[in-house]
Design a protein around this nucleic acid. Structure first.
Lengths: 152, 152
DNA sequence: TTACATTAAATGTATGTACATATATTTGCC
DNA sequence: GGCAAATATATGTACATACATTTAATGTAA
């Protein structure tokens, strides 16, 4: 199931124009990458969004983070950080305590177990498996530039 | 909330390398585009996956499609076509009848109302609103080539 | 023809997304 | 102080994803 042009992947012989083709390719490839990543994370008992939140928390450690800070730094701003933290708390990878200085807010901290899990994944070079290995550094930069331009 | 480099979007001042940056940019941009599309579809009472299935069914019309065929042509192969068809059936945009020649399979057809909805969206140039307007045709082709290479 | 594997679709369960709303706390203004 | 607006988080609901399991129909081989 290796090299495949996008036309073959979705069995659509042609596209209206290069814009439609690029769009479909973009959505498809993002899903493709996400699924590969998810498969790796599954071995560690967490999901990609959970991993991303853990990573943010490690960046703050030993300082706590609030839900607001997590949302700010997440890739998907509209997702529900609160419920992702629920799952991490259930796995005892993070702790939740109401912030003493502002009792509306919640201080979220990564636990020792959480840090160990991330370390274990680092050691296995999991985050490096982004799946863009087929590009040269130059091509990766080109890709970033094109994507930035889309959102301008 | 317009031009923003990816560093600003997720408030991460720098990336490990151009691969990590391109990866994060790719996932973020795909989500960004998806959200814009979803907002447009909402006006028509359907979601993006529902729209994609309707489009496939129109391509087959007046021949029916099976669930298997839908999965083959969908962008996300692992999603659950059966349940997306449920929603379309509830809105009477498609019909489901067991295939006479193979009673395991189900013949799915787009209804007149479904065709009219798509026509209405065509007229409003909804599918054209892919959001890649900022690229030149050349850049769109470049983007497609890079994405194909990622999956090689 | 019965028995077993294969195929097509549906269903179950956990997770996440998207958006609206609710609850509690704090802040600012009179 | 008291009250309205703003803020921080949580909850509700609909939809979709991801993957395992189930149900029914078909194919195949002893």
């Amino acid at each position: 199931m290796h090299p495949m042009k996008i036309e073959d992947e979705i069995k659509q012989p042609f596209f209206k124009d290069s814009f439609q083709k690029a769009y479909i390719n973009l959505v498809f490839t993002a899903g493709w990458l996400g699924q590969r990543q998810a498969a790796v994370f599954r071995d560690y008992g967490i999901t990609l969004p959970q991993f991303n939140i853990l990573r943010i928390l490690r960046g703050q450690h030993p300082k706590p983070a609030t839900v607001n800070l997590l949302i700010e730094r997440m890739l998907d701003k509209t997702s529900n950080a609160s419920r992702i933290v629920d799952k991490l708390e259930a796995k005892q990878l993070v702790t939740r305590t109401t912030c003493p200085s502002n009792r509306r807010a919640v201080d979220i901290c990564i636990t020792e177990a959480g840090l160990q899990l991330l370390q274990q994944m680092d050691d296995a070079a999991v985050p490096q498996a982004t799946g863009l290995q087929n590009l040269t550094p130059d091509e990766a930069a080109q890709l970033s530039a094109l994507l930035d331009k889309i959102r301008d």
